[in-house]
Design a binder for these strands. Structure first.
Lengths: 158, 158
DNA sequence: TTAATTGATATCAATATAGTATCAGTTAGA
DNA sequence: TCTAACTGATACTATATTGATATCAATTAA
């Protein structure tokens, strides 16, 4: 069971980069290189986020992408919904009519309850919050030697 | 985002049927007819549950399947893990090494926290608990007229 | 002996996910 | 004004996952 697909994963990390470099346009190329994501695939993800009003773009040389909202206003839940669709329990939930099978209904009821819990949790996690955590994590290892810096590169890049 | 795949869905509902008819063997055929599941597909699901010790089978005429455990001991979380694998965040979690990308790590940490919440919730939901709810739901509509009984058939079958 | 059953396994179809390629249009700057 | 660095749009391919079907051997109650 995969909680996040590549698209959502890439989207979140791209947004974190945009959040870290707020005020300037960041190109898809630089994101794809720095975060090790396939360039064209990432571009598709970015365009999807434009369509949803999360980011804006500028064409041409020195163009790129920029957050269109405050980081605290962009929640992981919304990203999951954009790239993976609404959380659903089997197909049952699509039917407007009363649930077809009683045992399925009882089951569905339980799952929906859990769904609410999950939604609530994901709602809390915003790009803003993640950015603060990233910052905190960075500050926790400030005094590295050269050798340790190499290790920290491993932590960052691969 | 699908919480339950068909396999898990079918597994749970098959177990509910076995739970409702405890003490006797129930054939794959009767489950597939009564619960409207594809016969061969269901059989695969049942065999998987045998391998995991949740149910036992008897071959031949009058054969079928029977719970191997108390309904209260069979949790939905276990079923999800059997049929959908452990909950994971993208691929990141497979690597034993320290997480490749710092922002991915921060993200992962948040997701893992939510994962714990989800696990805890699913842990609570057992076949036994669902059976009791099913029972309660059935008792809530005891005095139906013929017309209403037809409706209740819709609720049960389709 | 036979029909109803499970065990085991091979195969296929549909869908979702992941990734690539291409071309047109925009723009900063030499 | 030319060019290289960009995005917009879209078509395509590959791979993995999910859902479903088919077949044949072995078992067993009647």
């Amino acid at each position: 069971m995969k909680v996040l697909t590549k698209k959502t994963d890439y989207a979140i990390r791209a947004l974190l980069m945009l959040g870290a470099k707020r005020g300037s346009y960041v190109s898809a190329k630089s994101i794809s290189v720095e975060q090790d994501m396939p360039y064209q695939f990432l571009r598709g993800v970015l365009q999807e986020m434009i369509r949803h009003g999360l980011i804006v773009s500028k064409e041409g040389v020195q163009g790129g992408f920029m957050l269109a909202k405050e980081p605290g206003e962009i929640g992981v839940r919304q990203l999951i919904e954009i790239f993976q669709g609404t959380v659903q329990v089997s197909e049952c939930m699509f039917r407007k009519q009363i649930c077809a099978n009683r045992s399925r209904c009882v089951l569905r009821h339980e799952i929906m309850r859990i769904e609410q819990v999950v939604h609530h949790e994901f709602e809390q996690v915003t790009i803003g919050k993640l950015l603060r955590k990233l910052d905190a994590a960075a500050n926790m290892m400030p005094a590295l030697t050269d050798g340790e810096k190499q290790e920290s590169t491993i932590v960052k890049e691969g």
